[in-house]
Design a protein around this nucleic acid. Structure first.
Lengths: 156, 156
DNA sequence: CGCTCTGTTCACAAAGTTGTGAATTGAATT
DNA sequence: AATTCAATTCACAACTTTGTGAACAGAGCG
């Protein structure tokens, strides 16, 4: 029974809902998941609009977002004037996790809070210092975790 | 120069903005950061409302959210009828990262997509299978990463 | 050179969020 | 039991977000 399309549509919508719950914008999430389960190497804006039941304008906005965060690649097709959107072969998940410098930024902010408090023995000083070290830890370890995944992926 | 209050207010707002950008709701983020930099062991709803310049109702909604996700603890005070809200000594950052089963859920959804596609050799089958394995990887490794942090925190 | 098809942009409308003020509930103190 | 203060809840208003339809721009083909 190849390609249970109904089940795939459900997966697309449910996964998009989970991502949305995690703060990811809705339409980009739907487009991302539609691309994930597409059998072709990519979909055109028209196909995306059709499958998701939304307007071309909505697709335009969503793919622009996805491009800026590096999750989607736009590819002109020879033979058709429709562009194709596809997921980078092996980097989209990296983009979804370690792409943003958010942990480093939070670490930096916490470090300036430590300076502003200027009393390491106080409860606030200790608390904020721990926050700073925690985000520095994440900032350092997450790239390593992604490297670990890369290695695992390439081996087995 | 102990406690540069203006700088701390800035850190609170900027950190809250970063968290908000990452999908965290705004008022809970502001309350969280206000508690982070508070010198006392916790703040009352009234104090929070005062420092953030918002109504008691807004605080009520924010702390309810923070409680449900385990980031904040409510503590009745003897001597006053005002409750105090404080951050768990050592678990709030864990709650912020590994708290939700989101990665496991996404892995499960991707796995059902693999089933629905039912053709491991197809592009879509391979792509979705990789998504499934990636989120399983995160689901397994993130708790380990948190354990690593715990160990680091307790040692040095 | 103009036609057609693709994608973008703009103003607007629909929908959902978020915080407020007022009323209500609840608990502690007298 | 009554009073008083804290916290919650509710309806509403302000704001933001999100997607639509229509106009626009631009590339390639005839």
């Amino acid at each position: 029974m190849p390609r249970n399309e109904q089940a795939l549509r459900d997966v697309v919508e449910q996964s998009a809902a989970v991502l949305t719950g995690a703060g990811f914008p809705k339409m980009p999430a739907r487009v991302l998941m539609a691309l994930m389960v597409s059998d072709e190497g990519g979909l055109t804006a028209h196909e995306l609009a059709e499958r998701l039941g939304v307007s071309a304008a909505a697709i335009s906005g969503a793919v622009r977002y996805l491009q800026t965060v590096g999750i989607v690649r736009r590819l002109a097709q020879s033979g058709s004037r429709r562009d194709r959107y596809e997921l980078p072969e092996d980097t989209w998940y990296a983009a979804m996790t370690s792409q943003s410098p958010i942990y480093g930024v939070l670490a930096g902010l916490a470090e300036s809070a430590v300076t502003a408090i200027d009393d390491p023995s106080s409860a606030a000083g200790a608390r904020v210092d721990e926050m700073a070290r925690f985000y520095r830890f994440l900032d350092a370890r997450l790239p390593e975790l992604m490297a670990e995944w890369e290695a695992l992926r390439n081996s087995g």
